[in-house]
Design a protein around this nucleic acid. Structure first.
Lengths: 225, 225
DNA sequence: ACCCTTTTGTTGTAATTCCAACAGAATTTT
DNA sequence: AAAATTCTGTTGGAATTACAACAAAAGGGT
């Protein structure tokens, strides 16, 4: 299958020509793999050398704790990457799992190759490394942003913090979120039913309206919190 | 002042010789600056081109929200870095502040120079970039670890999660933490007095003992949570 | 030693969250 | 189309946290 178009959209291969990407894939030991819905891609505890790049479908990075509570750390959509930190940080076992939310195709890349092999043959290699750096930088900011939401003290504040950030990201007061209720609760680290209740209240209090995954923030609120 | 010894200990300059570091500093537009206790180094909202490397003292990365609640995102000790994500991600305004916890000296480095200028003159330049990557990777894992703590539902679980991680990091059941009570509460995103109460209970329930910043986890607990 | 400031522990009340359980809606499977 | 499953919203009681207020302890400066 031709997935070069997806790779071109990725931050990792930004600014690299299609034919260059093609030749780099071999150099990076690229392997494509398909997963069914709910299938585990990476399992908490194991060590990995490869990072994943989602070609189609959707991947969730989750953390299951001792008592079985699950938290969704992030959701990865096509042309986004996951596992790169663990692949870069030597011998650090995975503290999270990655699982396919739906039927998903993943391209695995050997990160070590990006870092260590630097043959002059690959003129775009330097570019690749710089791109990888910016991927890290943004992921860092994403994690910081998430911390920002879940450090809020109440469920209501967490919801408003998250939804307003999504609204800003979408550039519109109306937007869709990539989670269902249970997943949103896991992402914000709150209890699902309590969150549902709080959503009702927010709607009653005229902060927002929603239908399924589509939310609309009311003007008077949009720029607060 | 000679701070090369501190730089040699940093992850950024790992594997680079002292004389090489010296010559690179000019290339990176290195500037040393001193701060008093509680002085603001970076202010939430502004944009930065430089990253900071702590030479002496201690820096806290904090997030103040709309209602004035403060969260400590991380504490940066000598030879560690901060602000590199924002310096790398173009035109992204700071979503956090950095402040000196005590009298502190910081060396500022122009990250863009690391990424863009790649004169063959700098034979260690590639090494520098790889080092920067591993800094990012580890910081990512650190943030993921922090999320792990604050996603716990109760104050008790948050404390145990944090303290057991610190214990493992220190390689001992007895260890010191870099926070006072107020700061620990901010780091774990809980209320200080409620946390103090929970600490008392944990001590009463024989999970641990503590005096000021020194904690000791009881054996039967050490490897849980 | 003294005063002053900061830090820490404790208490009680109000508010919030968790949890379990359930019913209706929506979706998927047969 | 019917049945089964998943998702969502609601409720009530138990548990936990937030908040404010205060006292004891520890540090700092003079």
């Amino acid at each position: 299958m031709n997935y070069i178009s997806i790779l071109k959209k990725s931050q990792l291969f930004f600014g690299i020509e299609a034919n260059e990407i093609q030749s780099m894939l071999g150099c990076l030991s690229a392997v494509e793999k398909k997963y069914d819905k709910n299938e585990v891609i990476f399992h908490q505890g194991e060590t990995v050398d490869y990072m994943g790049l989602v070609l189609s479908g959707c991947v969730h990075i989750v953390k299951d704790d001792f008592w079985g509570n699950r938290t969704i750390l992030s959701d990865i959509t096509p042309s986004q990457m996951f596992g790169e930190s663990f692949a870069c940080a030597d011998k650090q076992g995975l503290t999270v799992s990655a699982l396919a939310v739906e039927a998903t195709t993943v391209l695995f890349l050997d990160v070590k190759r990006i870092l260590t092999t630097c043959p002059s043959a690959c003129s775009f290699h330097t570019r690749l490394i710089r791109n990888l750096l910016s991927v890290f930088a943004e992921k860092n900011l994403m994690l910081t942003g998430k911390i920002e939401h879940i450090t809020k003290r109440t469920t209501r504040e967490k919801l408003l913090s998250y939804l307003s950030a999504e609204s800003i990201k979408a550039g519109s007061a109306t937007f869709q979120i990539p989670f269902n209720r249970q997943q949103l609760a896991e992402y914000l680290a709150v209890e699902r039913s309590a969150m549902s209740l709080e959503l009702s209240k927010l709607q009653k209090d005229d902060f927002l309206t929603y239908h399924k995954n589509e939310f609309h923030l009311k003007e008077h609120f949009t720029h607060e919190a």
